[in-house]
């Protein structure tokens, strides 16, 4: 076992973990943050996306130790019913959510894009979401939602 420290959604944690555990396991099993999803467990689908030190990563490929001393944002840290993030609002308004299993990862990839680049081009939006698979929507409305969120942010 080993001890790691990290800040998740603005809260500091000191955790005892097995070094084999993935960040995904830490978030879901130790912290009960179940909004981070596992769709493939091998980096292909992006359902497990979180923001680690300002960058999106697949938490299924990050070991707990790699997250030591880092700052992490999961979907639970992005917005809530009282004050949804513009991306979350736009996803609902545009109809970019169907089954919703890809949604947390999509929202985090989109949020991180807008944090860095508030006025992205269509191509930049496409690239930013290219690591997140959705089997339901056909992507069109998701791209439109991110665009809408960017416009609202202007």
């Amino acid at each position: 076992m080993m001890v790691i420290e990290c800040i998740v959604n603005d809260k500091k944690y000191v955790l005892e973990v097995d070094p084999q555990e993935r960040l995904l396991d830490v978030l879901r099993n130790h912290l009960g943050l179940l909004g981070t999803k596992e769709g493939c467990g091998e980096g292909e689908c992006g359902a497990c996306t979180v923001i680690l030190d300002g960058k999106t990563v697949n938490s299924c490929l990050v070991l707990a130790g790699q997250a030591h001393n880092s700052v992490i944002t999961t979907i639970e840290g992005v917005g809530n019913r009282q004050s949804p993030h513009p991306v979350q609002k736009a996803f609902v308004e545009v109809g970019a959510v169907q089954c919703g299993f890809c949604t947390p990862g999509m929202v985090l990839s989109a949020k991180n894009l807008l944090d860095k680049n508030p006025h992205p081009s269509d191509e930049e939006i496409g690239v930013a979401l290219s690591g997140n698979l959705c089997r339901c929507t056909g992507y069109d409305k998701i791209l439109r939602a991110v665009k809408l969120a960017a416009e609202e942010g202007k």
Partner: peptide, 19 residues
């Protein structure tokens, strides 16, 4: 019409069976 269930989904609150 807005899908009512999408709110829970964008906040990561919706429970899937793995959850």
């Amino acid at each position: 019409a807005l899908r009512e269930d999408s709110w829970g989904k964008v906040f990561g609150q919706t429970k899937f069976p793995a959850d």
